[in-house]
């Protein structure tokens, strides 16, 4: 069953001579509970596609349908709420908040929603990600791999429908990257998450259920 669809998604940057078409009429469907990777060479539009699907960037034309509803028809506040409640994000640079500790970073999306933290669930993901002894540490006290695990835990904390990951292993060594791939698989298999990952890493692509290949702003293979 499709959870997310893009319909003739187009994204154009710049104007006139500087005009760049990052996405050209991209129509794609993401299955619920699946592990989807988007691969392609640099500049192929894979990150732009992810950003548009996640509501981080506004497409020039086309629609992104979440459970059949265009997310860009929502107000800024509702779109933020949607990202907070329905989506999880993992970025290449981890992007943790340096002034709060690991536990608070993990529960940040829930806190922003003014909801009560599900301590049992949070403990579970902390266990799964092996961060038990780091909960009270601050981001600058963690290694890159540990920081990325915190970022994944944060993405999971609000029990999202979909997790978007943009080059999640780009800043990690191969051993740590392997660990992250395992965690992603666990998320899909044990927690039933839908995972969309933009990557250059062939191992991640190989571990995915679906692999979308992009080139020049269009989908080449699915």
């Amino acid at each position: 069953m499709s959870i997310l669809e893009t319909v003739r998604l187009t994204k154009i940057y710049g104007q006139d001579k500087n005009k760049v078409e990052a996405l050209k009429d991209v129509t794609v469907s993401i299955e619920k509970g699946g592990f989807t990777t988007i691969v392609g060479p640099s500049g192929s539009g894979k990150s732009t596609l992810l950003h548009c699907m996640a509501g981080l960037d506004v497409p020039t034309a086309g629609e992104v349908l979440l459970n059949g509803r265009n997310i860009f028809s929502l107000s800024e506040e509702k779109l933020s709420m949607l990202r907070r409640r329905n989506f999880g994000f993992v970025f290449q640079s981890f992007n943790l908040i340096p002034v709060i500790d690991v536990y608070e970073n993990i529960t940040l999306p829930v806190s922003l929603d003014d909801k009560k933290i599900d301590k049992e669930y949070t403990s579970k993901i902390i266990d799964i990600l092996g961060l038990q002894d780091k909960a009270e540490s601050f981001p600058n006290e963690l290694s890159g791999g540990q920081q990325q695990r915190v970022a994944i835990a944060r993405a999971l904390s609000n029990k999202p429908d979909i997790i978007f990951a943009d080059e999640p292993t780009g800043n990690l060594d191969s051993k740590t990257a392997e660990e992250v791939i395992k965690i992603f698989r666990t998320c899909v298999e044990e927690l039933g998450e839908t995972l969309i990952v933009v990557t250059h890493n062939n191992d991640i692509a190989a571990a995915a259920d679906v692999c979308i290949t992009m080139r020049d702003g269009r989908i080449k293979h699915q």
């Binding site: 996640a54 800024e76 907070r84 994000f89 992007n95 940040l108």
Partner: peptide
């Protein structure tokens, strides 16, 4: 970068 991430994970402009 930090603000962008906070916005990404659902912090509203308000």
């Amino acid at each position: 970068n930090e603000f962008a991430m906070l916005r990404a994970i659902g912090m509203t402009v308000k």
